[in-house]
């Protein structure tokens, strides 16, 4: 499988009167064609800003200041070229052709994400007409077809509905139909099921899985829910304070998490196969985005904190076996010099 999108050293900062908030701080990852990447982390860790950086939709005072977003674009003659999205003007023709046409996005609050004054049908056909050389009536046919594909009953009548006449789950189906209407090679889903109830969430996830296989598109699935990631993702990236702290195949990460943050996240998850009195929580909260912590950003909350190391040295990504990557000092010689307990022994199971 070939690489579809490669994000290298992405930095998106928000320049506020009170200082610079490094919402995304040298983030590196890649997505392969047809693969599902789960991006996990607590609120405010930079997941959504990463997604918007890829879409080039970061609004001032936010700016993507550095990095590369290498997107592999299929040519008409079957070849492919690699473009750096950050080199394109954010509102230029080329970027707008990619946005919505080749990379599509769905959002957290389905109903608020649809215009209250336009019919849902018109909102879908608008996307089709923007990216495909079809007539209005052809676009409408495609839209109806898409609505049927996302299992909306009476699709033809629903074309004339307004967002406020549909349920949240229905709205998210409409959003998915709209996003997929131009067969994008990448779908960015920013917490698409967070605002939905559990039953609807399951339906939407199932729908997405089905369509993903059918259309062979890649999905960047952003969520704070590890359970959802376990169901959906091939690969997982765990984010903390604008940085990816651990990355690897989903199965590996769930079987054998390396970073103390990942471990703590998994501990806080209810599991069927284990009997526990109560769920673990991670102590503390995500620190202020303006705060300038020395050393590892997770050290104030870390269970395996090593004084004199973790609060002084900034960890760099380390590649482990099985294409795993972890940003933690426990896996460097620093930790062994101090002869502190290493995570493997102290943690899970």
């Amino acid at each position: 499988m070939d690489t579809l999108l490669e994000v290298r050293d992405l930095q998106t900062h928000f320049f506020m009167a009170e200082g610079v908030a490094k919402a995304v701080d040298s983030t590196t990852f890649s997505i392969r064609r047809g693969q599902v990447l789960g991006v996990v982390g607590e609120s405010g860790c930079g997941k959504s800003v990463t997604a918007r950086s890829i879409m080039r939709m970061v609004r001032p005072p936010g700016h993507t200041v550095d990095g590369e977003i290498l997107y592999t674009r299929p040519d008409e003659d079957g070849q492919s070229t690699v473009v750096d999205l950050l080199q394109l003007p954010a509102t230029g023709t080329e970027m707008r052709a990619i946005r919505g046409g080749e990379i599509a996005m769905i959002f957290q609050e389905p109903r608020a994400s649809l215009s209250p004054v336009h019919k849902v049908g018109d909102q879908i056909t608008e996307n089709i007409l923007l990216h495909q050389p079809v007539t209005q009536s052809e676009a409408e046919d495609i839209a109806i077809d898409m609505l049927q594909q996302v299992h909306i009953p009476l699709a033809e009548q629903r074309m004339n509905a307004f967002a406020h006449q549909l349920s949240g789950g229905m709205c998210q189906r409409v959003m998915i139909a709209m996003a997929l209407s131009c067969h994008p090679s990448l779908l960015i889903a920013d917490e698409p099921t967070t605002a939905l109830d559990v039953t609807t969430e399951a339906q939407i996830l199932e729908l997405m899985q089905g369509l993903q296989a059918e259309l062979n598109m890649a999905i960047m699935f952003i969520t704070h829910d590890l359970g959802v990631v376990a169901d959906m993702a091939d690969e997982v990236a765990v984010m903390y304070l604008g940085k990816i702290v651990e990355r690897g195949a989903a199965a590996d990460i769930f079987r054998d998490p390396k970073h103390p943050y990942t471990i703590a996240l998994l501990e806080s998850l209810p599991r069927m196969d284990q009997k526990r009195e109560w769920l673990q929580t991670i102590r503390g909260v995500v620190p202020d985005p303006y705060s300038t912590l020395n050393g590892c950003p997770f050290h104030p909350r870390c269970a395996d904190f090593i004084a004199g190391v973790c609060d002084e040295i900034v960890p760099q990504p380390i590649t482990l076996e099985d294409n795993r990557e972890v940003r933690c000092l426990l896996y460097t010689e620093h930790a062994h010099q101090e002869s502190s307990p290493v995570a493997e022994e102290t943690s899970h199971q």
Partner: peptide, 13 residues
């Protein structure tokens, strides 16, 4: 997480 504004990390600062 339901309120996107609350999710924004900049408010508090």
């Amino acid at each position: 997480a339901a309120d996107p504004r609350a999710a924004s990390p900049y408010e508090r600062g």
